[in-house]
Write a protein that binds this DNA or RNA. Sequence first.
DNA 1: AGAGCTTGACTGATCGATCAGTCAGCGGCA
DNA 2: TGCCGCTGACTGATCGATCAGTCAAGCTCT
Lengths: 213, 213
Amino acid sequence: MNVASRPPTDTQPDALQKILEAAERTFAEHGFDGAGMKALATRAQVSQSLLHYHFGSKGRLYEAVIRNRSTLINDERRAMLDTCDLSAPDGLAQVFRALYAPALGPSGGGRAYARIFAGLIAGNARDQALVRDNYDETARSFIAAIRTCLPRVSGLEAAQIYLCALGVLATSLAKDGRAERLSRAPETPRTNEELVNTLVRFALGGAEAFQNE
Amino acid sequence: MNVASRPPTDTQPDALQKILEAAERTFAEHGFDGAGMKALATRAQVSQSLLHYHFGSKGRLYEAVIRNRSTLINDERRAMLDTCDLSAPDGLAQVFRALYAPALGPSGGGRAYARIFAGLIAGNARDQALVRDNYDETARSFIAAIRTCLPRVSGLEAAQIYLCALGVLATSLAKDGRAERLSRAPETPRTNEELVNTLVRFALGGAEAFQNE
DNA sequence: AGAGCTTGACTGATCGATCAGTCAGCGGCA
DNA sequence: TGCCGCTGACTGATCGATCAGTCAAGCTCT
């Protein structure tokens, strides 16, 4: 089909990438069950059979989308976390910035993966296993960092703080425009940097409320 | 089928209720697209046709589930909000308690509706309209209360605070057990009161971080 | 008798998955 | 150099299963 338009010396790694991108968008818009393999293949401009040829089943394609994106985000999160100065006065703010910025930046995949990520919170059986396999390890690093910054909180409290911070992220990612609608404010395009600052401020305040007990 | 076992003088208002309960549970476990009308009818112990007789379509049954539960929650929220003393030192804490407690109490429908609620955050087209119709009005009351308690925050900031607080709720509702797994703490059954206290503390700290600017 | 409720049987559409088969490119052999 | 045979990438056609929704007939009350 598009073979003739392809550069001749190019082996074709683009098909897999096109499928992953189309799958990410389609799963984001309709969820796992709502997304159809046929529509997904049409969007990727390949045949439906190719999806099964490369990924075997719908479930494994979904897993590949999650794994692909979560690896990008988590790698950047861990890199930023390593550069945090946990003993600095703003150490905890740096930690939350390392949590939020990668999900909102180029690695985060924009609104498309954001919806999938928010959906993971709903937590049916399939998603819970994916969260565990793709996010728990990095999550523990962040929880350890939170405990370093707030030595008086328990491990369970630190985990709760981490989850609350994640919930803040998920809401802000997916519910674009609702804040403006609820406050009747005009739709002003906010930069990712401004959004990160807002989230960090909220999470920081919430976390520190557990320190002063 | 179960007609014979029903008390004879009983008119059957239970069919509708059984359908709503089964629908809530099934939608919670599989999402809108993943839930099948046939399985749903089996769970409710009625025929699939009865679902269409009473609700017309799958979409309207879904809307009925959301409307039914959100009415219960929002009525209790507004009642609690009306009793808040916004000028008290813990006025904002009372507001967040009014936001959280009804969703976690008997009116909240337990884990079942919690999953649906968390899924609403993901925000595809259908869900966005439902959120607007069923939650925006009460949300504006809470945002106004937040502004009263924190007079220095703007309307948009107050809306963002409200959404962050909601995200905290959604995460805690759906991801049961993950905090314990991440912190390797034993699974301790926590009362709803303890959970509400934790959420209120976090949201209160996060909100007050916007006041001190 | 008649209205409201409930049922089983059924429909067309769409689902994910499978199949045999096409095609281009490449290494081995003459 | 030129041909053979293999392999990986990819496709259209089609499968059985399941989907939401429809319909006429039967039931139970009043």
